[in-house]
């Protein structure tokens, strides 16, 4: 077992564990912060899988923006009466479905890719990613910009219509 594998396993355990904590934590803020840990660990996994650029984008976008946004939303919508439980009644069904989905996917993966190895021949540097992004993937990239614009306008409209009332 190489050092990379060891680090990856540690990061994987951290990611899965913090994800579980995030989804089961009774306190909303803790959930968001555990998610930060998960995302960071996943970013670490990305680095180990030769995807440095993606990793830092993950940190920058997820940790820097998404999580801050989520925490902001949590703070804005903090409910004064915390009488209701944080999980719904069908939590056991949900848990069963989650386990089934995880095991099913895992089993599929095991069945399909047992024995395969990642060799890390091509590092995902800014240059190579940029090359791919702006040559072969430029059309999806442009479409994505349209999607982002639509989402931006949509978010503004939803927020405005709420505040006008």
């Amino acid at each position: 077992m190489s050092l990379t594998e060891l680090v990856f396993l540690v990061l994987a355990v951290v990611a899965a564990g913090s994800a579980l904590l995030s989804m089961t934590s009774g306190q909303l803020v803790h959930s968001a912060l555990w998610l930060v840990v998960t995302l960071g660990a996943v970013a670490g996994c990305f680095v180990l899988m030769t995807a440095e650029f993606v990793a830092w984008v993950q940190v920058l976008v997820y940790v820097g923006s998404v999580v801050v946004l989520v925490i902001f939303a949590l703070m804005l919508t903090r409910q004064t009466s915390a009488t209701t439980a944080e999980v719904t009644g069908n939590r056991w069904i949900a848990a069963a479905l989650g386990v089934v989905a995880a095991i099913g996917l895992g089993a599929t993966m095991v069945a399909g890719f047992r024995g395969e190895d990642i060799e890390g021949r091509r590092i995902g540097t800014a240059g190579s990613i940029g090359q791919a992004l702006f040559t072969d993937w430029v059309l999806p990239f442009e479409i994505l910009s349209g999607v982002l614009l639509a989402a931006l306008i949509g978010a503004i409209v939803i927020s405005r219509s709420g505040s006008d009332r």
Partner: peptide
């Protein structure tokens, strides 16, 4: 680092979480 700029910006964006956590906690 090849991605030094990204790295620094990402690190800084994590750093501000500290103040946020202080406010929340």
């Amino acid at each position: 680092l090849d991605l030094g700029l990204f790295f620094v910006l990402a690190a800084m964006s994590v750093g501000v979480l500290g103040t946020l956590m202080g406010g929340l906690g």
